[in-house]
Amino acid sequence: MILKSENLEAWFGEAKALKGVGLEFESNTVTAIIGPSGCGKSTYIRCLNRLHEETPGARIGGRVLLQGRDIYGPEVDPVLLRRQIGMVFQKPNPFPSMSVYDNVAVGLKLGGIRKKRELDSRVEWSLRVAALWDEVKDKLDRPGTSLSGGQQQRLCIARALAVKPVVLLMDEPTSALDPISTARIEELLTELKKTVTIVIVTHNMQQSARISDKTAFLLMGELVEFGETSALFTTPKDKRTESYITGRFG
């Protein structure tokens, strides 16, 4: 087990968004977090890389353990932690006026890697793992924003992978993409999990069923059910899970 949360709580000011969520993520698996809008699923993964606390007025309770170590411990630097836990966002967000190459290399460059050869090989590796290399190898100096939406999202995946995280968080990474780009990313995820542990938030239950090993169902900030994806979708233990996956609400 690489990552786990214990009784995780999160607030925005006085509003409590998470009410004690405990989940465990095993190495080299894909875990999907599903639930209706506003159930706290994005907030949950934003607590896993300490991005939640960047929002003014936000705070958390409980613990998150990465390889057994509490990431909210006093000696942990959130900046260094985030190099181990990468993130891909809902909207493709390549850095403005940066080339394809620089988008992938920027985390390394600003992290202190200067050697051209090392940068080159890491950029190529990241783009290959993100299944984008063949499409962009001849236009590495073009702006990242000149790529198509699906390519931009894979560029963002490559950017996150370049700093070699052990966990990759994905916040509805395909919700802004067309079905073909979505399919490419889903294919990619099954390859990616050989390299990193993936936690993906999705509002698309079919997607969760297609790509994840385990699924967690959140409702109004509470964990309703967590288990093997096949079991959760075929024989849900909780009434609310059943209503949700059969489309009775949400």
């Binding site: 890389n49 190099r83 985390g107 992290g111």
Partner: peptide, 16 residues
Amino acid sequence: MVPVHVREAGLALGLP
């Protein structure tokens, strides 16, 4: 005008 998620992407890369 620079979207918040661009800043967050930078933070999520482990940049100060």
